[in-house]
Amino acid sequence: MSLISAIAVFFIIWWLVLFAVLPWGAHSPHEGGEEIEPGTVPSAPKRPRMAMKFLATTAIAAVIFAGLYVVVANRIVTLDDIPFLPDFKDTARWRTGE
């Protein structure tokens, strides 16, 4: 896997994990029965703690990416293992023109 591909895959994993982590610990004043300030959306979180969520997202994404990298680098699962995809074993011959 090239460096650019690795960065792109890590970013996609990070982005997906972020949306899973965002709701963790989010409490709105409306849920707690507190008074809502004028001009504030009732569902807005009181203390979003985004820095902690970004750190948690990065740690979780790094673990997922490391597992994916091990699978790809050691060829534990390849495209040929997926039954509904075409056979990719002969692509090297096609690229060289043999």
Rank of each mutant, 00 (worst) to 15 (best):
E31H: 08
S5M: 12
A26D: 12
E34C: 05
E31N: 03
T40R: 14
L16K: 00
A8G: 11
L16E: 07
R49Y: 00
D81R: 03
A59H: 04
V72A: 12
M50P: 08
M52E: 13
A66I: 10
A59Y: 04
R49T: 01
I4R: 08
D90H: 04
P29G: 03
A66L: 14
F10G: 08
I7P: 06
T58E: 00
A44M: 11
T96V: 05
I76F: 09
R95C: 06
T91N: 13
T91C: 08
A56T: 05
E31T: 11
V17E: 02
F88Q: 00
I4L: 10
T78A: 09
V77Y: 09
A44T: 13
M1I: 08
H27D: 04
P83C: 02
G25K: 09
V71G: 00
I76A: 12
V21E: 01
A59G: 12
S2W: 04
L68F: 15
F54H: 07
M50A: 12
F11G: 14
R75G: 01
A20S: 13
A92D: 14
S43F: 04
W94L: 15
H30F: 15
L22Y: 02
F88D: 09
V17F: 11
T58H: 02
P29Q: 02
G67V: 01
T78R: 06
D90F: 01
K46C: 06
R75F: 07
D87C: 09
V9W: 05
I36F: 07
I36N: 08
G97V: 03
H30V: 13
E98I: 11
G25L: 07
A59E: 09
A73S: 04
E31P: 09
V63P: 05
L85I: 04
I7S: 10
L3Y: 02
V77G: 05
V77R: 11
A44C: 00
T78I: 03
V9Y: 10
Y69F: 14
S5C: 03
P42I: 00
I36M: 06
H30A: 15
T40C: 10
A66E: 06
F84L: 12
V41S: 13
V70S: 05
I36P: 00
A62I: 07
